[in-house]
Design a protein around this nucleic acid. Sequence first.
DNA 1: GTCCATCGCCGGCGCATTGCGGGAATCCGC
DNA 2: GCGGATTCCCGCAATGCGCCGGCGATGGAC
Lengths: 215, 215
Amino acid sequence: MVASSLRSADYDVEECADSESALTKIGDRLPDMILLDWMLPGQSGIEFARRLKREDATSEVPIIMLTARGEEHDKVRGFDSGVDDYVSKPFSPRELVARIRAVLRRVNVHGGQQPVDVDGLHLDPASHRVTADGRQLKLGPTEFRLLHFFMSHPERVFDRSQLLDRVWGRNVYIEERTVDVHIRRLRKVLSDSGFDRYIQTVHGSGYRFSQQLDP
Amino acid sequence: MVASSLRSADYDVEECADSESALTKIGDRLPDMILLDWMLPGQSGIEFARRLKREDATSEVPIIMLTARGEEHDKVRGFDSGVDDYVSKPFSPRELVARIRAVLRRVNVHGGQQPVDVDGLHLDPASHRVTADGRQLKLGPTEFRLLHFFMSHPERVFDRSQLLDRVWGRNVYIEERTVDVHIRRLRKVLSDSGFDRYIQTVHGSGYRFSQQLDP
DNA sequence: GTCCATCGCCGGCGCATTGCGGGAATCCGC
DNA sequence: GCGGATTCCCGCAATGCGCCGGCGATGGAC
């Protein structure tokens, strides 16, 4: 019920019945936010939240916890599990959406706009600028998003389908080979400064952004 | 009651029942000032104030706190939460308005009315004048606000919708294309002095004001 | 009322960007 | 080294996007 009300508010929702399947799904694709019930089968919601906050990969993902009214609400806060917000049942869809928007905005201000820098290759999302050793580079919107994604997820291989999902968007139907073309265009822009070597081909798997240049 | 008395004093007032909805509303549109009750459901007013002062986006917004008489008034000050002023209940509308005007005056002197200067392009909100290398420019009200907004938020991309919100106002219904037109008019005025190059197009994202001219 | 400045919008034009197919080059397992 | 798979390069066509000139409406000054 919660999921469908969120979907109708235009959110992209994944549901999980237990913490194990949730971990799997989170590993597949990092969500923008996690809505977590206080009562979970097997493991308490707090325990789960702590675990996510402990791991580097997921520590930045905001969590909103659903609690029954009067159910240890204060205790939850006291536990200092790093949860970002709480919503007490019963709640209205409107309230939930409002809290989600607030949390997402908060992390967006602090997260998505942060500039990234790798060995002198500098990308600033706020001003939408890229410089290599101080010299400004000119790249198209898609190449910009692609580079931004790579720089914020270094040392990890992504296949073409994943890149299409995360750089282009989930509901686009584009040939996978088109990714190659944009990789080439991105490399061309980076080639003058030598940073094209950071965009590495992993034969049979996809592409990777890495400072460890292979010979 | 407070809200309506402020409205009759010609202020534009938004009310929020709790800190979460307040955060949402603040995120939507930055207020000129925040009137904050010491007692909030869920989160103390001080905690809320601290949080606002911690975030870059809101740290400059002045806060006036409402406290019950004798209710830890000094403690509040001691807490050093960055609050700008305090009003003790019960208070008269007259007193409240006086304090609000005082606070607004203080920040206006330090903030919104301050002249801005970038490389010889000079904009003075107080006298409503713009000069480029000393020569005075003539631009319409909208272009003036647009330039003022750009100059006080340099090196950042804004899309058309954000510009409409922050330069035109939040409750206007205007085509996004119209932004282009005013950008063009603004550039035309600036073109003689060469400052039109500071108004930069970011294809697919919006516009940016920057002294780093792209080649 | 008249004039004038400003504003928002429309239609059209031209360029940047994008996605794709064909063919060359490269890589990998054998 | 060979063959098949995979990746890279080139150019093209279509689309999207931004820019421009102009027009009618509005509202204030006189």
